[in-house]
Design a protein around this nucleic acid. Structure first.
Length: 422
RNA sequence: GUGGGUGUAGUUCAAUGGUAGAGCACCGGAUUGUGGUUCCGGGCGUUGUGGGUUCGAGUCCCAUUACCCACCCCA
């Protein structure tokens, strides 16, 4: 047992899992870039107030899940619990919306921190990839964003369910909220303790309760989509129409509620079977008022974030096949210079290769290569060195061949061709 | 914050209250340059930690801690 352990809820990512991570990140960057999203990198730390204002004082994230601390100057800071607030702050601070006409498409990828009790799919340090679009108010842009999300699912061969909703705007949501309160108040005695509190604190959450399962018990719960203002209602229709043109498979789920206060109108969520109860792999929606509320010019905006731990947990195991490994051995000290030359040449090519410079017996070299899972080996023994040759052996097929030591280009192309075949 | 479960070798797991073990993995070897099989050899682990009961505790009791899962919340 080592004396030090990783901090609770924060995990080491070790090989070979780390390879899946870096490949996944590479793919996400590539996909986003192709759709003309540009990367924005914001600090891990922001002022506490930014999050309090942005996410809402009453949200659980702000109330009890943030890592808050003071620096030596007494500034109240927080580790970012989500990605959007920092992006919005940077968008305003650097006048991105003023310098060029919109829409401005940005993506980010990085760690977030929430002080929660860890469980499957939930960690204190977790990672998100997100897309944000500033300066476009249309539901069609929401649809394009959701289409991008569905492309990401397809790319990673993930079967997810895209659930969309409209949660209204400041014009219509308060009225719906009242309707819910009216509906549930007489039923308070039948509700669980949490829900009784929610009637006043957060009535929108009532319909989501797993203890009471209100949607099973009462069929006549007021539904947000029946209480939208004319503008929100027509936007929602346009959203659905656009999604159909994109051929995005989706279901309307009028019970989706976003946990952060800044969302309006379009809200969506992608769920998948992650093997735990934390099955939301992505979530997002429109946040038209956040830029203004954060102190910037009124700017409509929409975006979403994917939880990378959860995404990776549903990416098929064989999605990223490791490259075959090649190894080099010397059977005696006299083979080492030639082995060094081979290492030097192969280092310049995209083949996975490593050498061992302690001379081994032939049999032990093969054993070692097997144990490390190598596919190709190169051996320099006395005969080979005498003739300026190298022995190549394919451990999968047993085929072997000798090459001249100067035929390294042939060797490289052979290794690379083999990889393409596979 | 609230529950439940589990902590024994690198790992997966055993051990009616009576000397702590096995598989896998790892290292070395089995007469000279051909592997995955086989065989032989290699482990004194503060049994998570601290107390208690007992002649005797990995085993029973209490506390504590870590991890896992669930509630809650969310990515």
């Amino acid at each position: 047992m080592s004396r030090y352990t990783a901090v609770k809820g924060m995990n080491d990512i070790l090989p070979p899992e780390s390879l899946r991570w870096s490949r996944m990140e590479e793919d996400l960057r590539l996909l986003a870039t192709r759709l003309n999203y540009q990367e924005i990198r914001t600090p891990v730390v922001e002022s506490l107030e930014l999050f309090q204002r942005g996410l809402g004082e009453t949200s659980d994230v702000v109330q009890k899940e943030m890592y808050v601390f003071e620096d030596k100057n007494g500034n109240k800071l927080a580790l970012k619990p989500e990605g959007t607030a920092g992006v919005v702050r940077a968008f305003i601070e650097h006048s991105i919306g003023i310098e060029k006409p919109g829409p401005h498409k940005l993506f980010y990828i990085g760690p977030n921190f929430r002080y929660e009790k860890p469980q499957k799919g939930r960690y204190r340090q977790f990672h998100q990839f997100g897309l944000e679009i500033f300066g476009d108010p249309t539901p069609e842009m929401d649809a394009e964003l959701i289409y991008a999300a569905s492309m990401i699912l397809d790319h990673f061969k993930v079967k997810g369910e895209i659930r969309v909703n409209s949660i209204g705007c400041p014009a219509c949501r308060p009225a719906y909220r009242e309707k819910l309160v009216e509906y549930f108040r007489p039923k308070a005695d039948e509700l669980c303790g949490d829900c009784r509190r929610r009637i006043d604190s957060n009535p929108l959450r009532l319909i989501d309760c797993k203890v009471d399962a209100p949607r099973e018990r009462w069929r006549d719960i007021p539904i947000i989509t029946d209480h939208l203002c004319p503008q929100c209602a027509s936007d929602f229709e346009r959203l659905k129409k656009a999604l159909e043109i994109f051929h995005v498979p989706f279901v309307v789920d009028p019970f989706i509620v976003r946990g952060l206060d800044y969302y309006v109108k379009t809200a969506f969520e992608i769920t998948a079977d992650t093997g735990g109860t934390q099955n939301a792999i992505a979530g997002g929606g429109r946040y038209d008022n956040l830029v203004a509320e954060t102190g910037g010019p009124a700017t409509p905006a929409t975006g979403f974030a994917i939880g990378l731990e959860r995404l990776l947990s549903v990416v098929p195991e064989d999605f990223y096949a490791p490259q075959p490994l090649a190894m080099g051995f010397a059977l005696f000290d006299g083979g080492i210079p030639a082995l060094l030359h081979l290492t030097k040449h192969l280092s310049h090519h995209p083949v996975r290769y490593m050498a061992e410079y302690t001379p081994r017996k032939f049999k032990n070299a093969l054993q070692k290569a097997n144990k490390l899972g190598a596919r190709h080996i190169f051996i320099f023994g006395e005969d080979e060195v005498k003739n300026s040759q190298v022995l190549y052996k394919d451990l999968a097929t047993g085929d072997q061949k000798t090459f001249g030591q100067h035929e390294t280009m042939t060797i490289v192309s052979m290794l690379m061709d083999k990889e393409i075949e596979k």
